[in-house]
Simulated assay, not measured.
Amino acid sequence: MSRFFKTLMLVLASLFAAMPAVAAAPTWKPYDAAQFARAQEAGKTIVVDVHATWCPTCKAQAPILDALRSEPRLKNAVFVKVDFDKEKAFLREHRIPRQSTVLVFQGRRETARSVAETRPTELRAAVLAGL
């Protein structure tokens, strides 16, 4: 390796080492009844996206909801994707009539609900209102 590349590698390494550690945003987890119940029992904030792969409204909501994962107030939240076509028991239990429904729970208590909202400001406000 040439001296130039060695120097470049050292400079880059020192720059990365000097950068503050950035916490990774929470990731979306597929719905699992047992894990969901544990998060509720622990009093966690839970953001639920009831979606369907074929739903255009769900596709429009996705980037808005993904951006919320980096919201500092949601750094400890659990983000859960519920498949509208498969998780019928969850839908019945929470009285969800359609896909593109977004819920926020504080433990066992539902604190916010938005249905079919695709305007970024309004969807963001709806989710954050549940905190």
Rank of each mutant, 00 (worst) to 15 (best):
A126M: 10
V11E: 02
F16A: 11
L103G: 00
R113A: 05
R3C: 00
L91Q: 06
R92L: 03
T118S: 15
F4E: 05
S114D: 07
E122A: 10
C58F: 00
K44F: 12
A37S: 11
S14K: 01
R119M: 06
K75S: 14
F4V: 04
F84D: 05
M1S: 06
R95P: 06
P26C: 06
R38H: 14
T45Y: 04
V80K: 08
L8M: 12
E117Q: 15
V47Y: 07
P26Q: 04
W28I: 03
E93Q: 14
E93P: 05
L103K: 03
T118H: 10
S100K: 04
A42L: 14
A34I: 01
V47L: 12
L10H: 02
A62D: 03
L91D: 01
L12V: 03
F84N: 13
L74Y: 15
V22Q: 07
R98I: 05
A25C: 00
H51N: 11
K44H: 07
W54Y: 12
T101G: 12
H51Y: 13
T7K: 13
T101V: 14
V48Q: 09
K88F: 11
K81P: 02
V22K: 14
A77Q: 13
E117F: 07
N76M: 05
E122N: 09
L91H: 06
P30F: 11
A125V: 11
K81A: 13
A52F: 08
T53N: 15
A89G: 00
F5D: 00
D83S: 09
L128E: 05
V22T: 13
R3N: 04
D32M: 06
E117P: 06
S100R: 07
N76Q: 09
A33M: 08
R119I: 07
P63E: 06
L68G: 04
V104C: 11
P20G: 08
A112N: 10
I46N: 12
G130I: 04
R3Q: 03
V115Q: 11
V80I: 15
D49K: 09
E71C: 07
R69S: 13
A18F: 13
A67G: 11
F5Q: 11
R73H: 06
T7Y: 04
A18E: 00
P120Q: 15
H51I: 07
A116S: 15
T118Q: 15
S70C: 09
L131F: 03
P56D: 05
I46W: 08
L65T: 04
D49P: 10
M1I: 06
A77F: 14
K81C: 06
L131Q: 07
A37W: 08
V78P: 01
K86N: 10
A13F: 00
A112R: 08
S14P: 02
A34Y: 00
P26H: 12
A34W: 02
Q106T: 10
K59T: 10
T121K: 15
Q99P: 04
A33S: 10
V47W: 04
A62T: 06
L68Q: 00
A13D: 00
Q40F: 08
I64E: 01
A126P: 09
R108H: 15
A126H: 12
L131V: 08
A112L: 05
K44T: 09
D32E: 08
A67V: 03
V127Y: 02
Q40G: 13
S70W: 06
N76T: 05
A33H: 07
R124A: 11
T121R: 15
A13T: 00
L68H: 01
P72M: 01
K29Y: 02
D85K: 09
A25W: 01
I46T: 12
F16T: 05
D83Y: 02
T53L: 15
